[in-house]
Write a protein that binds this DNA or RNA. Structure first.
Length: 209
DNA sequence: ATGGTCAAAGCGCATT
DNA sequence: AATGCGCTTTGACCAT
């Protein structure tokens, strides 16, 4: 058993902390180098019931091609004037997945957070998306999940840290009180258990009470 | 207008 | 080589 009990208690407050700082050093932005952007407008007329297809832009950015597809009825806030959707100035509109597409992706993600090439292709066909889009969606979705989990862990650690800190305070106070009531030589009477709670012999307890 | 937030996508690197 | 991941940029949308 330790005979330097005070150090034992003090040790409780050491080595605790939330090492969550990023320490990240941003990489050089290479995306803006030699970027040749060509935007092509593509008009689709494939929506039923007169729904208007919008925002179909094939954007050639470096080596990547994308086609975006969305339907107005899925986005009530969407302003649906022709000028909004035609990209006359050559700028693409950002892809937004439809609610149906999103929910199907979500459902699929619940079943498996990663897809093999066959599953990916099947899902892409089903959703009328490119496999690359499905792939990216899953990547981002995994990242979001991880971020959420990190947040949860952070909160748990915070709580745990607070509990330990409270316990440490309590023990320090207890020790102080014990010292205050010290009458004569005490060492053999007071012992600290492994969990750092004080145990006393019956004689000392009588003295304190 | 502008700043914040969210999601899609690009890029570089590590792993398999 | 293919894939995943971390970090980042970009564009749309919203609140102020």
């Amino acid at each position: 058993m330790e005979d330097n009990n005070e150090e034992c208690i003090a040790g409780l407050c050491l080595g605790l902390g939330l090492g969550l700082g990023s320490g990240h050093v941003p990489k050089k932005n290479k995306q803006k180098e030699n970027k040749a952007v060509v935007c092509l407008d593509l008009a689709f007329e494939l929506c039923p019931k007169g729904e208007k297809a919008v925002n179909n832009v094939n954007h050639h950015h470096d080596k990547v091609e994308r086609i975006s597809l969305e339907r107005i009825h899925d986005y009530p806030n969407e302003k649906s004037t022709d000028s909004d959707n035609s990209n006359n100035n050559g700028c693409r509109k950002k892809l937004r997945l439809s609610k149906d597409q999103s929910s199907m992706l979500e459902n699929s993600f619940k079943q498996h957070s990663t897809l093999n090439p066959v599953q990916k292709q099947a899902l892409a066909d089903q959703l009328n998306l490119k496999t690359r889009q499905v792939e990216v969606w899953f990547q981002n979705r995994r990242a979001r999940t991880k971020l959420k989990q990190t947040e949860v862990n952070r909160e748990l650690l915070k709580k745990h840290c607070q509990n330990l800190s409270d316990e440490n305070k309590r023990l320090k106070k207890e020790l102080q009180e014990l010292r205050a009531v010290k009458v004569g030589p005490s060492p053999p009477c007071i012992q600290l258990s492994k969990t750092a709670t004080l145990t006393m012999c019956s004689l000392c307890q009588k003295l304190v009470n």
